[in-house]
Design a protein around this nucleic acid. Structure first.
Length: 429
RNA sequence: GGAAAGUUGCCGGAGUGGUCGAACGGGCCGCACUCGAAAUGCGGUGACCGGGUAACUGGUCCGGGGGUUCGAAUCCCUCACUUUCCGCCA
């Protein structure tokens, strides 16, 4: 959530930012936040005075009791009893204002960085770079779901039988290939200085709130109700929550973490042709990179992350493009976001494989992830960033389609050391 | 899943109703001594929310939440976690 300080000190900039993000009722939302805060502060002032007085009374009573002056003590007791009711009601009011404020702030999205292009939707995103070579496939080129069947690499029906749609089985060489991709992505991250962690795949409610999945996207997460735990939609959730309520030292920044995890998404409301095959799954594998940094350095960090992700796509020899998302298409929490898409030759469309964002202090404020500045020992909010590096299914889909040959699917050179074969086909042994 | 004991500041650890934000020890920072360092001595050492340009100042925080009381780290309830024992088990 946005800091109250920002809303107070730079009200106009916040309103303009929200408008750029096509957030309806920006001005009203900001004014309401300021109004709740004003009431909150006023209430606290009154409460603090009353508490201060009754503390003095209590200390007085203690002394009187020690001196054995029972009557005086009793008189003081009844005096302080009168204040109790007002204290209770002010405390309740204060608590309510605080809750209202947080609740309201959580409904206000992050404001975009000034580099974010204007625009309402996906059509306004800006292609900042294109790389790689789109393959020329013959007329008989197959989409990946056909290839999967042809070589018995992925069984969607079996997944549907055992679990449900969107939970495929990966078979034989494809299972090994996915394992190779995970190892490749993790190894590349390690080479770039990310510390690998293997996180829990389920998290508690507090973590869901910390990274903003809750309460808004509650319907997108699988919920294990008996224990009130949520299946993670991305490793971002457990990995970023490591730093919830943590005060870091500036000298330890940037913190760089990477994690491989399965990701679970209900994808409620997503239907149609875009969901075929590997295009959209309920469970998939992903390597995530996360960074915590100072405000001064976070955009350098972002650039390093972008270069890292781009390097992966180049090593996989995939045709790709990088989009800078426009204000209207960005996620709720990001200040700037770059999408990486790979070309899926048989489907003749771009598939998103990574979303790399700087959340600035928006997420850190919710998490209470802070750092102590070396220069003046002041405590400030960190900036948080994350990106997929990378999500497997669409990479797999694109590799299958782009690299199909009459003999099988050609494995990119960079992956051969990891999987131990050069061709994806049904010859398993 | 059953039983017991715990959860206090950066760390260890006291504290069972009345100047306790918290003894004591360690760490860390500053100062003194020293050519420098060690050792020693002295002083300091939290977060959060208010008020104030500031110095400073009011409030909250002893695992989380709730309760008893004029007053709670201290008593009660509840939840979470930790440790040990039993059960189960990859």
């Amino acid at each position: 959530m946005l800091t109250l300080r920002l809303i107070k000190e730079e009200t106009d900039r916040v309103v303009r930012g929200l408008e750029k993000k096509h957030f309806a009722g920006a001005k009203e939302a900001v004014e309401l936040a300021l109004e709740i805060d004003r009431k909150r502060r006023e209430t606290q002032g009154r409460l603090d005075n009353l508490l201060s007085e009754s503390k003095q009374f209590a200390a007085q009573i203690g002394k009187l009791m020690k001196q054995g002056l029972k009557d005086e003590a009793e008189a003081a007791k009844s005096e302080v009893a009168k204040k109790k009711e007002e204290i209770a009601s002010l405390q309740a009011a204060l608590k309510q204002y605080e809750e209202d404020l947080v609740k309201h702030l959580c409904t206000i999205p992050n404001i975009p960085n000034e580099d974010v292009p204007e625009g309402a939707g996906a059509e306004d995103n800006v292609v900042v770079k294109e790389g790689g070579v789109k393959p020329e496939l013959g007329k008989d080129a197959l989409p990946h779901w056909e290839l999967a069947k042809k070589y018995n690499l992925i069984d969607f029906e079996l997944g549907a039988k055992v679990t449900g749609a969107g939970f495929p089985f990966y078979i034989g060489k494809m299972a090994r290939f996915q394992r190779a991709l995970e190892a490749f992505f993790l190894e590349e991250a390690r080479k770039n200085g990310y510390l690998e962690v293997q996180p829990p795949l389920v998290v508690n409610q507090a973590s869901g709130y910390g990274t903003g999945q809750l309460p808004d996207k509650e319907g997108q997460m699988y919920h294990a109700e008996v224990d009130d735990l949520y299946l993670i939609p991305t490793a971002e959730v457990p990995v970023t929550n490591i730093f919830r309520d943590v005060i870091l030292d500036e000298k330890d920044l940037p913190v760089k973490r990477c994690a491989y995890s399965a990701c679970f998404r209900r994808e409620a409301g997503a239907y149609g042709k875009d969901v075929r095959g590997l295009n959209r799954l309920h469970e998939f594998d992903k390597v995530e990179i996360v960074r915590i940094d100072t405000p001064e350095h976070s955009y350098d960090s972002l650039n390093e992350m972008l270069a890292h992700v781009e390097g992966l796509l180049q090593k996989l020899e995939l045709p790709y493009r990088i989009l800078r998302l426009c204000g209207g298409d960005m996620s709720f929490t990001s200040a700037i976001c770059y999408d990486f898409e790979v070309w899926s030759a048989a489907q003749q469309r771009w598939l998103e494989v990574s979303s790399t964002s700087n959340f600035e202090s928006y997420q850190a404020n919710r998490l209470k992830c802070r750092y102590r500045r070396s220069s003046d020992k002041k405590i400030e909010l960190c900036h948080t960033l994350n990106g997929s590096a990378l999500a497997l299914p669409r990479i797999v889909a694109s590799l299958m389609e782009n690299n199909q040959t009459p003999e099988g699917i050609r494995v990119p050179q960079a992956l051969i050391p990891y999987c131990g074969f050069e061709l994806l086909d049904d010859k398993n042994f």
